[in-house]
Amino acid sequence: MDQRLTIITLGVSDLKKSTDFYETKFGWKKSEFSNEHISFFILNGIQLAIYGRNELADDATVDSNGNGFKGFTLAYNTKSEKEVDQLIEELRKKGVEIVKEPQKVNWGGYSSYIADIDGNLWEIAFNPFLELDERGNVK
């Protein structure tokens, strides 16, 4: 199996509201492959898909019940601590829930956490040990 990730699919409670969150709060654009049942966002070679939680559970043949910490986070890495602060302030002004304020962390970086409308956690972080190219991709 090749070492790669193609699509991350988030099961959401309301597809329309979740799609709106990513479009208006993050400023992302849906791809042309989106339709009334699923939204796709192309992210530096990986796709983020937004799909109904119950439909996603049905597709995987598992129960859709569950709450609390989901056991994973998504990360958006920046090129500086200042960029983390700026991004968090922009998201705060848009009404995004800030779960953890930006701060120095024990692993040597600087990070904050926000939540989307389904409680999926996004870490907004500067990692001084992670080399990013000019587009923000990991080198």
Score class of each variant (00 low, 15 high):
20 D>N: 14
128 P>F: 03
94 K>D: 09
132 L>V: 04
103 Q>E: 14
48 L>H: 13
83 E>V: 03
47 Q>T: 13
103 Q>C: 12
107 W>L: 00
103 Q>M: 12
44 N>L: 11
10 L>C: 11
52 G>P: 02
2 D>I: 08
80 S>F: 08
109 G>P: 00
26 F>H: 14
17 K>V: 02
59 D>I: 13
11 G>K: 01
136 G>Q: 11
24 T>F: 09
110 Y>S: 00
116 D>K: 01
99 V>G: 00
79 K>G: 13
15 L>V: 10
44 N>K: 12
42 I>L: 11
14 D>S: 08
31 S>I: 08
137 N>F: 11
105 V>N: 04
79 K>T: 15
37 H>Q: 04
36 E>K: 08
7 I>V: 14
133 D>W: 11
133 D>V: 02
114 I>H: 00
28 W>H: 12
90 E>D: 03
9 T>I: 07
34 S>W: 02
106 N>K: 08
121 L>E: 04
83 E>R: 02
50 I>C: 07
72 F>D: 06
111 S>F: 00
75 A>K: 07
25 K>H: 15
117 I>Q: 09
118 D>Q: 05
28 W>D: 09
23 E>F: 07
103 Q>G: 14
131 E>N: 08
5 L>Y: 11
24 T>W: 07
107 W>P: 02
65 N>V: 11
49 A>G: 15
117 I>S: 06
6 T>K: 10
45 G>P: 06
12 V>G: 00
73 T>V: 12
75 A>Y: 03
116 D>I: 00
